[in-house]
């Protein structure tokens, strides 16, 4: 009973021995978890900027040595990666706008209790989440629509993720019915209610959807693999994935280059995750909040 937890002001709460032990164990567990996640990243960063010969001799663990940026130069030196990066950014930017708009437009009517055929449409939409038609059928649809080898092949097939739509629908359902009724009384149409009342008060779920869809577009490679044939349109993930998966020691590698390939692989991982690592901490609060409001009350 000798532990003390200080609160604002002068009030103090004494901690029991059990609480203190729990705090210590919890802290220890979290530190171990942090190290488990952090150390591989530190190792990869160290290898990607260290001398290849030192890597080959196993002298690089967490502290880089013989620092150079050859791997990053080799990775980013040509025009391919920057162009692919540009493609990914525009797919992500426009994809997110389309996705959020389409998801909201689908979620809103399905959240309204008086929407005609609501149960049927709900079932119809959710059914596609449980039973996917598969790669070939999707490919045939894209092909027949004539959007193969265009940006639309990347943007349209993934415009609505049903799981995200359900989250958004649940959020809309939990908005007090009185708000709708007062708007109706004032003569507002459904479109006006949606645009001027519901959307402004739904910023947590919209921010969450932005992040979900952004991460999804950022990491996506399969639609590009299937629907695009020209490198000019490839997103960065498709190219970096090739480097990471195929880029073990090349059959033609020499001592000088064998572990440069390893370094390039690690550099590729950093190049891929860096933007998400930078953005995530700033939107994390929306992320958690949006998920909670969209799911718990459902």
């Amino acid at each position: 009973m000798d532990g003390v937890l200080k609160h604002k002001g002068s009030s103090k709460v004494r901690l029991s021995t059990g609480d203190r032990i729990f705090g210590l164990v919890n802290g220890f567990f979290l530190v171990v978890l942090l190290l488990l996640i952090l150390l591989p990243l530190v190792h990869m960063l160290a290898v990607s900027v260290s001398d290849a010969n030192l890597v080959l001799r196993g002298e690089i663990t967490f502290i880089p040595s013989g620092i150079n940026f050859k791997c990053y130069e080799a990775l980013l030196g040509g025009s391919e990666i920057p162009r692919a990066y540009y493609n990914t950014i525009r797919y992500t930017f426009f994809g997110v706008l389309i996705d959020v708009a389409m998801t909201a437009l689908c979620a809103y009517p399905l959240s309204r209790p008086n929407f005609y055929g609501r149960k049927f449409f709900n079932f119809f939409v959710v059914f596609t989440m449980l039973f996917n038609v598969g790669i070939v059928a999707n490919f045939m649809i894209v092909f027949q629509l004539g959007i193969k080898n265009t940006v639309w092949a990347i943007l349209l097939p993934t415009a609505i993720n049903v799981y995200y739509m359900v989250i958004m629908r649940t959020f809309f359902q939990n908005i007090p019915e009185e708000i709708y009724q007062s708007a109706y009384v004032d003569g507002a149409s459904d479109l006006r209610i949606f645009g001027q009342i519901i959307l402004p008060i739904s910023s947590p779920v919209i921010a969450t959807m932005f992040l979900f869809y952004a991460v999804s577009h950022w990491n996506a490679y399969m639609p590009a693999l299937l629907y695009l044939d020209h490198k000019e349109l490839y997103p960065v993930q498709l190219i970096l994935r090739n480097i990471v998966i195929s880029g073990t020691v090349s059959d033609n590698a020499t001592t000088d280059t064998a572990f440069m390939t390893q370094g390039i692989k690690y550099a590729a991982i950093f190049v891929t995750i860096a933007p998400i690592l930078c953005v995530y901490p700033f939107v994390q609060k929306y992320f958690t909040k949006g998920i909670m409001v969209g799911s718990l009350k459902g």
Binding site: V136, L225, L226, D229, N242
Partner: peptide, 20 residues
């Protein structure tokens, strides 16, 4: 049409399966 080697078999199978 340069298809990344890591996913070439997927692309090839899809191409053959869809006659594209």
């Amino acid at each position: 049409m340069a298809i990344p080697a890591s996913d070439f078999s997927t692309k090839l199978s899809t191409s053959f399966a869809t006659n594209d």
